[in-house]
Design a protein around this nucleic acid. Structure first.
Length: 373
RNA sequence: GGAGGAGUGGCCGAGUGGUCAAUGGCAGCAGACUGUAAAUCUGUCGGGCAAAGCCCUACGGUGGUUCAAAUCCAUCCUCCUCCA
């Protein structure tokens, strides 16, 4: 993997990430396909929308269909038919989201499989090995993602473990075609974040992620952490803000030097009837859209906005028609991908602050403390 | 003609003397969702008001018993089943 920064404005930057399965223009939004596909859209359609990277999840793929099956079928690219770059998350997020179903110690994490209760063990080493076996382009280390609130001493102990795991992950990494990213934890304690960034830098990862954000904290804390950690990460490596976020979160992240983003929001919200437009969010199931002949977003380039009214989407969504999810997902992902592409182009041409101001206006409600403007 | 059964809030459907403006579900109205246990979950859901309270209207119609009726009695209306 090779990463180059081609232009920058303030701390925001434009870059190119070269991987075994193609190039990624950064800043990039990466749709989340936990089980190997983004819910509601096929891999080729997703690529046609402009997505260059898709996420998948090692914990989930380990349970079903199993790493062996994926390996036998030629790796995760061949198995899923996804033509672009693949990044897998390690299961660190499930340490947070499935907290009631797991136990954690220095060795690793033991889950009670959420499907049938059977035990599943992940260790830093097994996680790196499994991601390499699937042949993904970017692998994430196993980390512990603590919820908020958490006491400082608990967060510190958690971080020490995550740091030891990062060391072990680094040592376990053996296949160059699969890049390995470290993850900065440390909850919302600046000293812990600083310590985390220092120790990860010393391990010389291919890229660096900020994890443990949007875990129940007040939005201002998340924002300030991104600002702080963004300044601590190496300039010459891709920076990945894990799990975020809203359009406003992306703008804030880009402004603070982030290159990669992933989030389930555009896809999940689409399924739940919340659509993004250049004038803000709309809840398409609301009665007001019953006979609205306009497209979801006049300025949107997606195939749905080119052919479909809000009224029709409203009808399909209320009827719980599966196509409603497909169309809404198509639109929202295109919106996100265009959103980031527009900022990328604005950055490259020097118009970033103008674009940012426009976005901040549309998504003011999403802007705790007004950091965007 | 005879025998039995049933009519409850927009719909379906509980409730069989007071704790019932009436369980549930659906529909409706709105909200949440951030490295996906999520095509999920939550709130609301007769009307009015100076609104954690009060008033009005409500369980097919009418009348009655009772301190008190969706619940008991009489009668009428409608529907269903079976027998002639």
């Amino acid at each position: 993997m090779r990463f180059e920064v081609t232009s920058s404005q303030g701390r925001a930057r434009v870059g190119r990430l070269h991987t075994a399965h193609g190039v990624v223009d950064t800043p990039a939004f990466m749709p989340v396909g936990t089980l190997g596909a983004v819910k509601g859209i096929g891999p080729l359609d997703l690529a046609a929308l402009g997505a260059q990277v898709m996420l998948a999840n090692l914990y989930h793929l380990t349970l079903r269909p199993g790493i062996e099956v994926i390996e036998e079928l030629g790796g995760l690219h061949a198995f899923t038919g996804w033509p672009g770059v693949l990044l897998t998350d390690s299961g660190g997020y499930q340490v947070f989201s499935l907290a009631e179903l797991r136990e954690i110690d220095d060795q690793g994490v033991r889950f009670r499989n959420h499907l049938d209760g059977s035990p599943v063990a992940l260790t830093p080493e097994s996680v790196v090995r499994s991601q390499e076996r699937m042949g993904v382009d970017i692998a994430m280390v196993l980390d512990e993602c603590p919820p908020w609130p958490v006491e400082a001493d608990v967060a510190a102990a958690s971080l020490e473990r995550t740091t030891r795991w990062a060391q072990r992950s680094r040592e376990a990494h053996s296949i160059a075609a699969t890049a390995l990213f470290g993850i900065v934890q440390g909850s919302f304690y600046p000293k812990l974040r600083e310590r985390a960034a220092d120790s990860l830098r010393a391990l010389d990862f291919d890229g660096y992620a900020i994890g443990g954000v949007s875990v129940g904290e007040p939005p201002r804390l998340g924002r300030s952490t991104v600002e702080q950690v963004g300044a601590l990460l190496p300039e010459d490596r891709p920076r990945y803000l894990m799990g975020l976020g809203t359009p406003a979160d992306l703008l804030h992240g880009i402004r603070n030097g982030m290159d990669l983003f992933d989030c389930v929001l555009p896809a999940r919200n689409a399924r739940h009837g919340l659509l993004y437009t250049r004038d803000g969010e709309i809840r398409i199931k609301n009665a007001r859209y019953r006979d609205d002949p306009r497209p979801v977003d006049e300025a949107c380039s997606c195939p749905v906005c080119g052919s479909t009214s809000r009224a029709f989407l409203h009808h399909l969504m209320r009827s719980r028609e599966i196509t409603a999810a497909v169309l809404a997902t198509t639109h929202n992902l295109r919106f996100y991908l265009d959103f980031v592409a527009d900022l990328r182009h604005a950055l490259a041409s020097g118009d970033f602050e103008d674009s940012a101001a426009l976005i901040a206006e549309c998504y003011a409600a999403d802007d705790p403390g007004g950091q965007l403007s």
